[in-house]
């Protein structure tokens, strides 16, 4: 307990207290800085968009991994986990090699806001897949067969039978993916170029505030990030409970 407090709780409380040390107006002032506001807005937008992408493609990937069978599927299983285990700075370098200046595809996305979406999509890939996959494996095929035998189309079966039981897992994965997206830093350093108003995210703003010896400013943005993440996690938790009750 003591170790946990020393390592996690006290430092995080320190962030909140430092952020509020100048009162509400100082806190709001820090966030109203145009460049900071642009960075926070980009971060929220990118995290939301990428989470939506993950909800769709993550569920599809989990579906293919569980229900389909083909040569090389084991390889895909390993590939899914790579973004989680790869050091974030290496992840940035990895993406730069395909989407950077020397791109063999001719896609020069580095230093644009697209690179932010790309990097977030990379690092948050495993969350929805790994949440949905075990639930899908446990799912009883009998119910689906019953639905089909009663004349439900494949789409209806999916929407009415499968999707409701996957919803909690998808929501949990989405929450993790959003929170991770909000705070991403390492993979963006090399890839996005950190151009103000274009590809600079909130974490980068925090770091430059720290480096400019402005801990209050850094703490204000950090507190803001913590609050947004917390809010989304609470909202998704509520949604998930409602779904479970209805189911």
């Amino acid at each position: 307990m003591l170790w946990f407090s020393l390592l996690v709780l006290i430092p995080l409380v320190a962030v909140i207290i430092t952020a509020s040390s100048g009162g509400w107006s100082a806190f709001a002032n820090q966030l109203q800085n145009e460049q900071t506001a642009a960075a926070i807005w980009l971060t929220i937008r990118a995290a939301l968009v990428v989470t939506l992408i993950n909800v769709v493609i993550g569920t599809v990937i989990a579906w293919v991994l569980v229900r389909d069978k083909f040569w090389g599927k084991g390889l895909l299983e390993v590939i899914i986990d790579i973004p989680f285990a790869l050091p974030t700075i290496v992840a940035g370098l990895v993406l730069l090699s395909l989407y950077g200046a020397e791109s063999p595809l001719g896609l020069h996305w580095a230093n644009t806001s697209r690179s932010v979406y790309l990097a977030l999509a990379f690092v948050t890939l495993p969350f929805v897949v790994r949440m949905v996959q075990p639930v899908l494996e446990e799912l009883d095929a009998d119910v689906e067969e019953a639905a089909a035998s009663l004349g439900a189309s494949r789409f209806t079966t999916f929407r009415r039978i499968i999707l409701p039981s996957l919803t909690p897992a998808i929501a949990a994965g989405a929450a993790l993916s959003f929170a991770r997206g909000m705070g991403e830093y390492g993979s963006l350093v090399l890839l996005s170029g950190n151009l103000p108003f274009e590809s600079e995210v909130a974490s980068v703003r925090i770091l430059s505030a720290i480096e400019n010896d402005n801990p209050e400013g850094a703490a204000a943005i950090a507190a803001m990030l913590l609050m947004v993440s917390l809010l989304v996690i609470v909202v998704l938790d509520l949604l998930q409970r409602r779904m479970v009750r209805r189911g």
């Binding site: 430092p11 995080l12 320190a14 962030v15 974030t88 929450a175 993790l176 929170a179 991770r180 909000m182 705070g183 991403e184 830093y185 390492g186 909130a202 974490s203 980068v204 925090i206 770091l207 720290i210 801990p215 850094a218 703490a219 950090a222 990030l225 913590l226 993440s229 996690i233």
Partner: peptide, 10 residues
């Protein structure tokens, strides 16, 4: 779910 930069700052 906390940004690594926030961890460092904290």
């Amino acid at each position: 779910s906390v940004s690594p930069i926030v961890v460092g700052l904290a």
